[in-house]
Design a protein around this nucleic acid. Structure first.
Lengths: 336, 336
DNA sequence: CTGTTAGCGCGTTCAA
DNA sequence: TTGAACGCGCTAACAG
């Protein structure tokens, strides 16, 4: 049924070792022999069995990636960066959604390890001791991708979420705003949630603006929650003149909520966010936002992983990619 | 270094066959023995090697999925459907982007087959003879996902793109429009391109409306190309009163282009599309569109694949999922 | 209910 | 430059 390296050897009149050599591009084969083997391979339609190879060589040229949700545009973009670089280095990707749920994360990490992946890319929520434990029991390299490690012991690549949020809010302040609300992510989420919230607070503090609890709502990163939060803000007696949303999607919800209530962005209320996903250019007005290089985060983390897998020494195993303020049209000064 | 089934057997004082049995939940093990084995596993931190298992059992519990672009919201949603069902049946997913490029598609199909996947989900552009050939050389089941097979010989799940487009354009006609433009995808793309274009033409024809070449532009599915096409239409001396876009993204580009030029949607120009991706609810006005059940397409195709992998007999290996007109606010009758 | 024995398909010494 | 032989870690008969 299936043709093996053994069949090819017989067909070509050589030993299986020789076939193995030509398949793996080992130079120690006479060109003529190599040719014979190639012909036999062709004739028989031989396809190497990567599983057998994996067992014998203890390498699968496969890396595992655990991701919160591939249907989320942000993560999908990161995944694309990962896959492109993986492909470039001839690795394949086993993709697992884990929804930032710890139990699911631990579970898929283990199945991935059982599958003998050569490395692991982890994108998730908080990295707990249990995570670290699971990582430690493996002997393949791990890198955290768009995910922060409190302890800082695991290689990772991400942006500085706190600083990104800080920069966003600072723009608002520079424009003269003092009444700045925030639509936050859940505070249990270290990166997109907590860190961005901290950046917001620090910016306020530095500008001597008092923090108000009723100026902060936590959303779930989705469009609808941006609308909900904003409708709450607009109902306040002293409504904010600017809104900082932790993500583009919530920001767009904010924009539409403001517009739907007959106000204007940015004339009545300014809106800014973090992400710069593609949709931030697919609204009116164009969204001002702090860009997070999603594709690069994926690409760089995969590149880092390849180095680790080759046991190359890496100088800096904790890379922070730069973010960048993208000024478009959703921010203006407050009304006089 | 690595602890094997053998070590566990020794530790538990049983044979490796017994360990294998408990690991695989074979009922033929005395509870007491089972317990001993579990303890030994625990003590040693044994983790089964799925590669060895795969070699011995000729099953990898892994399926390959080739996808055009995981960063594309539509496909990402399909992928989520696939992964959820795969997960439910304890399969893992090897994900490969192929950008609808034939050479890349063929290449990844082959690597996936080398990795001994138990099945293959193919999402791509045209299914050529070369594709079919590659499929035939494998002895694992394949199902086409959101992809049409001209010959109809390969199991597949998709919607009827022609009918979906037809329905969309028909709504426009029912509203009284006679000047209907289309922003098409590339005609080489059988499903999202050609079929939707055919649906447009059929609707026109049935209504006795003459087809005009200058009322059709082909875009690349992206927002920007929606803008470009629309700006062309708006420059026409007798500009259309309605635009049918092959995808949501292009439709939103159309909406914004219309608005940016001082006109109103739907008062001056109506816009309709196919997809109903999440962004169709993230615009003003809300986009009227024909819904394509992306998640379900993924889920159903994965479900079908599991049946095929279990060699269950399936009645209908070519499933067409229903589409549905979602009436929102971007369509109105033409101005009197 | 449990153990023994063969392979699964290939990489990799080690000799020749 | 080539081949023979072993083993990767596990499943799957087959015995008992």
């Amino acid at each position: 049924m299936t043709v093996t390296i053994y069949d090819v050897a017989r067909e070509a009149g050589v030993s299986m070792a020789t076939v193995s050599r030509v398949v793996n591009n080992n130079p120690n084969v006479k060109p003529q022999t190599r040719k014979k083997v190639y012909e036999a391979i062709e004739r028989l339609g031989y396809r190497p069995n990567a599983v057998a190879r994996g067992l014998a060589s203890k390498k699968t040229t496969t890396v595992g990636v655990v991701i919160p949700d591939i249907a989320n545009a942000i993560f999908a973009e990161v995944a694309r960066g990962i896959e492109d670089i993986a492909n470039m280095y001839h690795y394949n990707i086993i993709l697992c959604n884990a929804d930032k749920r710890k139990d699911k994360e631990i579970r898929v990490i283990n199945t991935l390890l059982e599958k003998q992946v050569d490395g692991l890319l982890f994108m998730g929520g908080a990295v707990t001791d249990d995570h670290v434990l699971a990582f430690k029991t493996s002997n393949v390299p791990i890198v955290l991708c768009a995910t922060t490690d409190e302890k800082g012991v695991i290689p990772s690549v991400d942006i500085d979420h706190e600083a990104a949020a800080f920069d966003a809010v600072n723009l608002l302040i520079a424009e003269g705003h003092r009444s700045i609300a925030m639509i936050s992510g859940t505070l249990q989420d270290p990166a997109n949630g907590y860190a961005r919230f901290q950046g917001y607070k620090r910016a306020l503090e530095q500008a001597g603006i008092a923090y108000r609890e009723d100026y902060v709502r936590v959303g779930n990163y989705r469009y609808e929650s941006g609308i909900d939060a904003t409708s709450y803000f607009l109902g306040l007696s002293d409504r904010p003149t600017a809104i900082f949303a932790a993500t583009d999607e919530m920001a767009i919800g904010a924009v539409h909520c403001i517009q739907d209530s007959g106000l204007s962005v940015p004339d009545d209320v300014s809106v800014i966010s973090v992400d710069n996903s593609r949709i931030s250019s697919m609204v009116r007005p164009l969204l001002t936002t702090v860009a997070q290089p999603m594709y690069d985060i994926g690409a760089v983390s995969m590149r880092l992983l390849t180095k680790l897998m080759k046991k190359e020494t890496v100088e800096n195993a904790k890379v922070t990619l730069p973010h960048e303020l993208i000024v478009r049209r959703s921010v203006a000064g407050p009304k006089a």
